[in-house]
Structures are given as structure tokens and as C-alpha cells.
Nucleic acid binder design. Structure first.
Length: 185
DNA sequence: TCGCAGATTGCCT
DNA sequence: GGCAATCTGCGAA
């Protein structure tokens, strides 16, 4: 398997969100290696997308969404949760990112369970904040290059059979857009 | 099984 | 000062 090249992310944000399904997320913590297949994503553009952090203006928090594609965007919210995004946009768009909502654990499941302090597999990574907790993603992973072999990157994976498109979750504006993508393994 | 409220911190207005 | 791309536990049905 190969690491996804930067040009993979240099396309329409919605298209990248779809194509990220089935790809492998790799997280290295010391000697431990945690991997998982991405099974749910959401697309957030900048302009004309009221639900996006970057819809209004560039701030210190969301500036990564305006920067280089293929870099991580981690943000802290609700006082206790982190969410993990990948910056992806074509040349026309000023900003955009794909939220990784859910994965299917492959390597290091035991470590993930330990990180989450629970023992129910079905409850391990079925949500963006649970995913970051299980994989130990924090603000230290804010602005990491995902196209390089480091602590955190994304590799090629499997091909999803059937992609489902739904409204995005947890937002109050822009709910008419079917930019939540998932598939069944 | 479903729906609601609390937790808790940093960012923006 | 108010709110957020969420999760969990609790109470009701």
C-alpha cells in the first residue's frame, strides 16, 4: 500500500470525502501502531457552506483550512472533544476540509480500547470525538503533513462497494447538503 | 429505544 | 458572555 499523494487532496472537497472511504488511517505512538479503515466522512467547504468553520473568515483556529491540502486540521470543541479533519480543496476554493467521523479498527485495537477506557467494540470509534480519543489525536496533531510517513498519515486501502450519502450531523445550518458519506464493509 | 441535559474549555463578537 | 462539526448517562415509555 502507498501513502496518498498530495494531488489526491487537491480536488473538489466533496469528491475527496467520497474517495477517502476505504482508505487506511495510520497513527504511530512510540512503538505502537494503530490503523483503521475510514468508513464515514463529512465534507466541509469554506465559501457558501454556513456549517463550515471557514465559511465566515480566516481566524487563528481555522487558518489551516485555507492552507496546504493534505495537512491535518484538529480542533477542540464542547470543552472536552477533539475532531480530526483533512484539508482538501481544488484550486478554485479558498478553503475546505474533510471530517473523519468513523473508522473500522485494524491494528492496535487493544490499545484503542485502553485509550477509550471501555470494552465495547461497537462503541469504540463510531463518532469523531471517540475516534480521536482511541487514536490519541490531540492538538499536537494540529497541522501534520498526512502525505509523509510520520506519526499520522493516510494510506491507500480498499474499495467501498456502496457509498451512502446523508445530511451532515451535529450542525444547525446547511443540513440540506448530502455531504456525509459512509459505506458498509 | 428514544430524547434531553450536563460536562467544560477555548474561541469569537 | 455565548456558543460549539459531541458523548454519555439518566429517566420515561
Amino acid at each position: 500500500m502507498r501513502i496518498l499523494p498530495r494531488k489526491f487532496y487537491n480536488r473538489n472537497t466533496v469528491q475527496v470525502a467520497k474517495d477517502l472511504l476505504g482508505k487506511t488511517l495510520v497513527r504511530k505512538t512510540g512503538k505502537q501502531k494503530l490503523t483503521g479503515i475510514i468508513i464515514e466522512t463529512e465534507a466541509y467547504k469554506g465559501k457558501n457552506d454556513p456549517a463550515s468553520h471557514a465559511s465566515k473568515k480566516k481566524t487563528n483556529r481555522n487558518k489551516v483550512m485555507f492552507g496546504q491540502v493534505g495537512w491535518s486540521y484538529v480542533y477542540f470543541t464542547y470543552g472536552m472533544h477533539y475532531c480530526f479533519n483533512v484539508v482538501a480543496k481544488n484550486d478554485k476554493d479558498l478553503s475546505g476540509a474533510v471530517l473523519i467521523r468513523s473508522i473500522q479498527p485494524r491494528l492496535g485495537i487493544k490499545t484503542m480500547i485502553k485509550n477509550r477506557k471501555i470494552d465495547v467494540i461497537s462503541n469504540l470509534v463510531n463518532g469523531p470525538a471517540k475516534l480521536t480519543q482511541a487514536m490519541r489525536i490531540t492538538l499536537e496533531q494540529y497541522h501534520v503533513d498526512l502525505t509523509k510517513d510520520s506519526d499520522l498519515f493516510i494510506m491507500d486501502g480498499i474499495k467501498p462497494a456502496k457509498i451512502l450519502a446523508k445530511p451532515r450531523i451535529g450542525i444547525t445550518e446547511g443540513v440540506d447538503k448530502l455531504w456525509n458519506f459512509s459505506f458498509k464493509i
